[in-house]
């Protein structure tokens, strides 16, 4: 991230006429933003619409709501297991993120700085591991999860999520460690610091932005994970939000859209809030993983 060239003057844009600019830049941009954000608007407006207005497009404009209601949220929070799913998702996401970060810090430091024999190959293998998709792992993993007796428990998810979190975090942290000058470590070595001291007192404090990036991204990834949670969890009280909303709130032929959309909205809020506080870290981890 440190070596990004910033060249922030206006460039050639200043030669463009105003009308042309509105037509070529602002109009397409407005369309993009409308399309990208409309589903969220629709989700939010449905979540607070009273049932009577929900499908009655004749008498009420579907785009607005008269007298918003919290009845769907209330139903969700007090009459379903939703709070439990929220808690499960949080526990699983936090635990797997910390587990992965801890393992990744050591791995990335070893690959990038200790340069043990085979470090390059290990780095490449980590990258390849990142490319292995959950869709081809869930069947054998379900067999393993069943065999070691953690089927239908939070532990099953906490132990399997690192399969995609560790490669990602390690890859990202390798990039961060690379940007820390060698000289700092060398002078610490000369002063008699052990490798452990160098890692905890020199490298880690400098890599805090990297740790935050990796942590935020890993948390979001585990919050969003679906296929493992769908496969490994069967009882209602252990489900995570995506699985719970989809499998327990959709019943029969009559969809309770109000409750479904409230569930989707509430389930998205934690990640969106977290994201809004750390946008730059998030973007840098997303682009960092691609750029390295």
């Amino acid at each position: 991230m440190a070596d990004t060239v910033t060249d922030d003057h206006e460039g050639l844009d200043q030669f463009e006429s105003r009308g042309r600019r509105i037509f070529l830049v602002w109009l397409p941009l407005a369309c993009f933003i409308f399309v990208l954000l409309f589903p969220f608007y629709w989700m939010a407006i449905t979540a607070v619409k009273p049932n009577a207005q929900l499908t009655d497009y004749q008498n009420h404009s579907p785009f607005w709501v008269v007298g918003p209601t919290l009845e769907h949220m209330k139903y969700l929070l007090f009459e379903t297991s939703y709070p439990g799913w929220l808690w499960n998702t949080l526990v699983v996401a936090v635990c797997s993120t910390f587990l992965s970060l801890a393992a990744s810090v050591f791995a990335a430091y070893a690959i990038e700085r200790l340069r043990f024999r085979g470090a390059r190959v290990t780095g490449l293998l980590i990258f390849l591991a990142y490319l292995v998709p959950p869709s081809i792992l869930f069947i054998p993993l379900s067999v393993i999860v069943f065999q070691i007796g953690i089927f239908d428990s939070k532990l099953a998810l906490i132990l399997t999520y690192p399969t995609f979190l560790i490669p990602f975090c390690t890859w990202l942290l390798m990039g961060y460690f690379r940007s820390i000058p060698y000289e700092l470590e060398e002078s610490a070595l000369v002063d008699g610091a052990t490798r452990w001291q160098i890692l905890t007192k020199v490298v880690l404090p400098l890599a805090v932005p990297g740790l935050i990036s990796a942590g935020i991204f890993a948390f979001t990834l585990s919050w969003n994970e679906f296929i493992y949670a769908l496969t490994f969890i069967s009882s209602s009280e252990n489900k995570t939000i995506p699985v719970g909303v989809l499998t327990e709130l959709v019943r029969g032929d009559i969809y309770e859209w109000g409750a479904l959309m409230s569930g989707a909205l509430l389930g998205s809020l934690p990640v969106v809030i977290l994201y809004s506080f750390f946008v730059d870290y998030y973007v840098s981890s997303m682009t960092g993983a691609v750029k390295e």
Binding site: P39, F40, N224, V245, L265
Partner: peptide, 11 residues
């Protein structure tokens, strides 16, 4: 970036 951040299942 919001569509990418929000859980896929929920969007």
């Amino acid at each position: 970036l919001l569509p990418w951040v929000v859980p896929t299942v929920l969007s």
